[in-house]
Design a protein around this nucleic acid. Structure first.
Lengths: 342, 342
DNA sequence: CTGTTAGCGCCTTCAA
DNA sequence: TTGAAGGCGCTAACAG
């Protein structure tokens, strides 16, 4: 369906008796155009209801003014709020955003890369799928010099910029919080160890344990795919063992919730709070468990920062393509946190 | 940042000793090109690693192959799953998607309209903000013949296609479910009455009440903005009255949760289940309240259907621009639904 | 400071 | 069934 013709810069030019290039330059705020002309052009553009045709401009400049985003799933709050941050910043700078979901599967992540590449995006922001263990597909971008920024779940193999939250500190705070409550036997359910994210949370936990001279029991540290099923399995294993932990620090929200659910279902009391990283933004968290202590990280901030970094690279404001930005985390202790999680 | 030059149809043409137009037609599967030539062109395209330049094509055809989406907030599960459905269908058909969030505010909704219009989208899918009470800003699209499809929260003033779920039946099922549990005094917290969605749920409720000869008490029907604060206020009003209801049917998830939270906090027993519409997809619902009965509606299906409809209109497969599609709902009764909601 | 000219890559008449 | 030519709207040299 073809649309009716629109006003172009030439219509403005004709109306003003000047040339198209002058109009173009005026509209782009080129320094070589007099202020008087600029004003005249802008006024005329407004009265004629001119809408710039990005398509033509993009074709000419071979920039799409579009960035691509690859995330595991948009339905997770952390990622949807990251999208909000990305969209907001990008739109303000005149960029559009294409979103692709990997569903946490490497295969689909590859498809996303192809899709975005074919769309000729000017740059890409990505958070890798849980089971992505090699990053060759991303070379489609790096080979063609398309800027790439990772966030949250980052890739160290590729030389790109990254935006992460302070997972080490998050792990540390979570563990120390439990220790301060008097817990000695603190289990940690960690995530896939090829992701820095989970390595760092684990290291933070270990540091807190060591700092307070608490013996670390390797049986209390479990590597999990962090899904619901495995969360329930971990809960069963830990809570029904002959020597159950005082507290559990789960490395993500799904796992923490699975544990709470399991415990509730079986009528098992968890003596202290569960700590969980990366969950406090979840809008239902206080419904879920008013006593759950969480580590706050803002998806919005992460998305915003990643976009800022990416656009800087795209616009060549910075030559440095390997910056790593670490955003702060904060422990959120809910009221009545001595109650049984419910 | 300009990118290095790419392979064009002329490179293919040169390699094959034919003209650019033939290549273009072959690639677009034009019927006037012999199968042999088509195959040769496709093969050569593959060997040369040709990537079509959508920009140029779009400029020429003045179609952007992009659709715009306006939703209240992406972080709500219903909408993020709708987005997933929209993206999936659109991408498969070669369309890109631009997402704009209104934050449930009419002002921002207007901005979204402008943004999408400036992006020259080929069509728009929208679910209106809660406080949108007039639809003039949407005329930006209809005036220019840009196809528009509403979903879930639809607008009746404008002559457009719509995709909704069967809210009437949802309301009916919810109320009848509570009646079947022996409840007589069933409160209903309804939403803004300028939205069909909530009118229909209310009507369904009323029909069920009448069918079972249950007296309708107007004090038990409350119109609410359906946010958390008002949910708590409604809970207080209903549950602490001298004659509290047997059960409450809340018209959305947030309100139902607020009520559960309030009741739990105050130690008030709600004699029967709470019914809630439009919530069963929420991934945490079973954590929140294993005994909550919900009305299932699939955001994914709604998004998919809306996109299908929109693309049909864009591609002129159908002249009918006022179709209304009603998708089915289903009541989901959780196990142990006689327990106190917790 | 402004105008002229020549494309960006593709599609689409028109002619063969 | 194919080719030639022109132009979508804009920008970026190159000239003034």
């Amino acid at each position: 369906m073809k649309k009716e013709s629109n006003i172009t810069i030439h219509d403005i030019a004709k109306a003003l008796g000047i040339s198209g290039s002058t109009v173009s330059r005026a509209l782009n705020n080129n320094s070589r155009i007099s202020d008087k002309t600029k004003k005249a052009v802008r006024d005329m553009a407004k009265t004629l209801g001119y809408q710039p045709n990005a398509l033509a401009s993009n074709l000419r400049t071979s920039c799409t003014n579009t960035i691509g985003v690859i995330i595991p799933r948009i339905s997770r709050y952390f990622f949807s709020s990251a999208i909000t941050g990305i969209e907001e910043f990008a739109r303000e700078k005149g960029f559009n955003v294409i979103i692709c979901q990997s569903n946490d599967q490497k295969e689909r992540e590859s498809d996303c890369v192809q899709t975005l590449f074919a769309s000729r995006v000017d740059g890409v922001i990505s958070s890798v799928a849980l089971n992505t263990d090699n990053y060759d597909h991303y070379k489609t971008f790096t080979n063609k010099n398309i800027p790439l920024v990772f966030f949250d779940r980052v890739c160290d193999e590729l030389e790109t910029s990254k935006v992460v939250v302070d997972d080490f500190k998050g792990g540390f705070l979570a563990a120390e919080h439990l220790i301060s409550k008097g817990c000695k036997r603190i289990a940690h359910i960690s995530g896939p160890q090829h992701l820095n994210l989970y390595i760092n949370r684990l290291q933070g936990y270990l540091k807190a344990m060591r700092k307070h001279n608490i013996q670390i029991d390797k049986d209390q540290i479990i590597e999990s795919p962090l899904n619901r099923e495995d969360g329930l399995a971990c809960a069963k294993k830990l809570l029904e063992s002959s020597n159950p932990p005082d507290a559990i620090f789960a490395a993500n929200d799904t796992t923490a919730l699975s544990i709470i659910l399991y415990a509730k279902d079986k009528g098992i009391r968890i003596p202290q709070d569960l700590a969980v990283v990366g969950f406090s933004n979840e809008p239902f968290s206080e419904y879920l468990s008013p006593s759950l202590t969480t580590i706050e990280q803002s998806g919005f901030d992460v998305g915003l920062k990643a976009t800022e970094l990416l656009l800087d690279i795209i616009q060549n404001k910075t030559g440095n393509r390997q910056e790593t930005i670490v955003l702060p985390v904060r422990l959120i202790e809910r009221e009545s946190s001595n109650k049984l999680p419910n």
